[in-house]
Amino acid sequence: MRIFILLLYFCDKFYLFSMRSIRPKALSRPHSVGTAVLRVGLSSAAASCGKAGGRHLRGIGIMATAHRHTGTGGMAGKCRVGSETDGVPVDHATLAMAVTIRRAKREDLPTLEWYGLHTPHREIIADAYRLQERGDGAMLLADVNGFPVGQICIDFLRKRPSGRATLWALRVFQPFRGLGLGVILVHAAERIVISRGVAVAELGVDRDNAEVLPFYERLGYEHCGRERGQFLYRTPEGKPIRVAIDQWLLCKKLPAKGEPDGGSGLRLAAE
């Protein structure tokens, strides 16, 4: 019996030593895996805050936060994160990110499939890029740390006879929605349209997607018609997909080139 008790004692000591040796060094006591990962992020954010708080980075500074928990001074004024030492639970963080609005490059095309979410639309993405290469369109991206978290396309060819440019394929990656990136992308696209001397920007909203109408109306777009039809594309496997179109058309009269546009005053990274 005494030998058995001794064996249990040494096995327990060995287990504790093993667990201590594999525990992340960032933790001083046991935590859940989620908290451990978050704490590493908080430590990094705190370090960067001390070095770069308030510094203007290239692109557009936006706030991405789990709880939109910033003080009146914003991130630069109060760069504070919870920690174990001050008694604040480590359950959220506020991160300041630099966003660059730029034209798409060929190497962006695979990433624009967003981890398989838009892989079936590979042909559509490639067609939009080819339109840009020919000078008949533009494909603008919101770039965060090298990843395209948002996109908007412009087609100068389709409505050229009527003096309009078509804005289409506006999308923002799910974790970055609700932060104003959609507005930034629309304004950037409008600047491109203005630079080409086109007087009107037009876009379509599917009639079963009426909840987005107020977004465009706030940006100055007005109802200007209805469009029905269909288009065809093929998946990477070669399967043809036919999509019916039933849209409201929204239009916005843009200022002439050189006039104030009343937008965000953004410039593309290449400008």
Rank of each mutant, 00 (worst) to 15 (best):
Y9R: 02
F10I: 11
F10C: 04
C11F: 13
D12P: 00
F14T: 15
F14A: 15
L16K: 12
L16S: 12
S21R: 07
P24M: 07
P24A: 05
H31W: 11
T35R: 15
L38I: 00
R39M: 09
L42Q: 08
S44R: 06
S44N: 09
A45R: 12
A46D: 02
K51A: 13
R55T: 06
I60M: 10
H67F: 05
H69T: 13
T70R: 12
M75C: 13
G77R: 06
C79D: 01
C79Y: 02
G82Y: 09
D86I: 03
V88G: 00
A93E: 04
T94N: 09
M97N: 03
T100M: 10
K105C: 04
K105F: 03
H118F: 15
H118I: 00
T119G: 05
H121L: 08
I124V: 15
I125L: 15
A126V: 09
G135R: 12
D136E: 02
G150S: 08
G150R: 03
C153S: 07
I154F: 00
F156Y: 14
P161H: 03
A165K: 11
Q174Y: 04
F176G: 05
G178N: 08
L181A: 01
V183Q: 14
I184A: 13
V193R: 11
I194A: 11
V200Y: 10
A201N: 05
E202S: 10
D206H: 14
P214L: 04
G220N: 11
G225C: 04
R226L: 07
G238N: 03
K239P: 04
P240S: 07
V243S: 09
A244P: 02
D261R: 14
D261E: 12
G263Y: 12
G265Y: 03
A270R: 09
